[in-house]
Nucleic acid binder design. Structure first.
Lengths: 342, 342
DNA sequence: GTTAGCACTCGTATAACTGGAGTGCTAGTA
DNA sequence: TACTAGCACTCCAGTTATACGAGTGCTAAC
């Protein structure tokens, strides 16, 4: 059986209606809804076909139809095609440039959540491939040294190092010079053992300090590696009865609370990244099992030179994909612009 | 009417039983439960009195009794008296000393949540009254300066300052010296306008930079002022049917998500701080209206010299106050010890 | 190919019924 | 006087019975 134009139109009508109401859609409704001018009986026949083809399903006999994951998938794919042609220039959501990236990303998550009425997550751009821009050691007191590591994009990491024997100002200066000349402009992954050995040699007497600094830097990276994730609007899911079941709600919200559980989602979305940078996971397609009753839309943004972050929106399967995709495109563009201004 | 010994015993029995089961407690249950050897009928008479006195109430005729807020209050007050005598030395919860305070507090919240099965919050100690320990300006590139402010207790704040005209190394050194001599050891509140004016004068040509640095410091404080709050285990409330109602659950979890909504609670608990540092809010007593169906237990910890933070536990009114109070005392002690080691 | 009509299904909402848990009261007992 | 046994009564929660509406599938007719 083939999905001809009429079947397609009916399917679209069913899905759109279901998106709006959240109730199973009957043949009579569609008969009035569409401009096809067909009787309910005809619609029923078509619906029967559509069900056989797996695009829609009945929650029970004598109920209307609801879209299956496959149906949603078709719908979303079609919509995305249209979207690519549109040039979305709506400015609904405005990102103010703020000092702290952290603050900014939090507010992106929040704005997005209140705007869409879904749950949202935003990850800080991964430092992967990012370059060390600047290093600074300074003495805090007799046996504590403050190490500051600044990476491209003004990602700043502090580390307090305990030292046993006091270092003179001079030594500190020398170490600073040594570290900066050796490490500045290097991608964090480039810092390898030979380099470290070399630096230790150059440091001479104070190679133990170098060692500790390197450890500190490594530590900075490690901290950054377990991804910063900001979430907002998790409680929005209570707005959708189909997700308000205690068990489901608890699972979903818990995933948002334990943000690290979202890592899988982020990785997946960075991996599969489509041309447009937008991914839609419907129901069982999701990489995070707790969200199998939801749909997840992710977008990738880039703050220049491989610093990629992810934005995700989680809602019911009947989410307003159209709006969500537009909003996400809009936001990612704005984030891109933001970087260019810097 | 007076709460004699027998009435008190019965009340305690009712409350304890209700804490365990969450179900209204009937006279027959108590008759078997206590060592008073009284018939249900007698218990009924006493219960009737207790109800009249406002310690217990009936959800409906022909149901057992449940404790009223007043009843819980009595119970908690009595328990707290006993607690003071006990020397709690259980080491259920172990705080590992970690590099980053932020990380440590997060894990305290988490450990506490999994340990108690309630929702928890932990605030970072307020910097109020905290002293500047160390300041450092360094050049990142032509027109960006990195200002690092370290306060007592190794609270570190970074700020990137944009400058118009390039500063020489020499000038930077001078500014560093100037700022450090003037500001180190000062409590952040002590930094006042005359001081700033003086410093600007001393800075001579570069007073605009001083101005910006001061702004940056002020900014650091401001960021710190809107309290860092870490939460965990919000979804634990789903474990208690009396809170699992959609509306209630949503409200409570939302409060935990929008952490700033908890500020009121923190302020209140710092204000009312009792001798033991532990506060119990039952039902309507809570400073945060969304939690009027819960009980909230807060404890204050101190990382030395006025750096006070708050730990809070939110659960159903029938929470295991005994365990919660013990655990909190335990943890606050451990936090105190932690500081001493530093 | 389309449609009208009808019997059938199923879920939800409502009312009626039942059993159990618990109370308050009264009268009887130590 | 203090306690208790007994009983009638109340109310909730769970179950069954019933009615209704929405929607389907099928057949026969256009």
């Amino acid at each position: 059986m083939v999905l001809d134009d009429r079947k397609n139109k009916i399917l679209q009508a069913i899905i759109q209606n279901y998106l709006e109401t959240g109730e199973p859609v009957g043949s009579r409704t569609i008969s009035k809804y569409t401009d096809l001018e067909l009787s309910p009986a005809t619609i029923r026949n078509e619906m029967s076909d559509l069900e056989e083809m797996g695009y829609i399903l009945q929650p029970h006999t004598s109920a209307g139809r609801i879209p299956s994951d496959k149906g949603y998938r078709l719908y979303v794919d079609m919509m995305m095609e249209n979207k690519d042609k549109e040039i979305e220039e709506l400015k609904e959501v405005i990102i103010e440039r703020e000092e702290k990236m952290e603050q900014m990303l939090k507010s992106v998550a929040k704005v997005l959540a209140t705007n869409t009425n879904y749950a949202t997550m935003v990850t800080a751009p991964a430092v992967k491939g990012n370059k060390v821009k600047f290093l600074q050691l300074s003495r805090m007191d007799e046996n504590q040294i403050l190490a500051v590591v600044v990476a491209e994009g003004n990602v700043i990491k502090n580390n307090v190092i305990q030292v046993n024997d006091e270092l003179s100002d001079e030594t500190l200066l020398k170490l600073n010079l040594l570290l900066n000349t050796n490490l500045c402009g290097k991608a964090i992954e480039e810092i390898n053992l030979p380099m470290i050995t070399l630096m230790k040699q150059q440091a001479g007497l104070h190679q133990d300090v170098v060692s500790e600094v390197i450890d500190a830097i490594a530590d900075s990276i490690k901290v950054e590696e377990d991804l910063q994730i900001y979430t907002s609007g998790a409680t929005n899911i209570f707005k959708y009865p189909e997700l308000s079941d205690n068990q489901k709600a608890s699972d979903i919200i818990h995933t948002f609370e334990e943000k690290q559980l979202l890592t899988q989602l982020v990785n997946e979305s960075l991996l599969n990244e489509s041309e447009a940078g937008i991914q839609v996971y419907i129901g069982e397609e999701t990489p995070v099992q707790t969200m199998k009753d939801c749909s997840v839309v992710t977008a990738t943004y880039e703050l220049g030179e491989g610093m990629k972050g992810t934005i995700g929106i989680v809602g019911p399967k009947r989410m307003d994909y159209d709006k969500v995709v537009s909003t996400l495109k809009n936001i990612t563009h704005q984030l891109d612009d933001l970087y260019k201004k810097k």
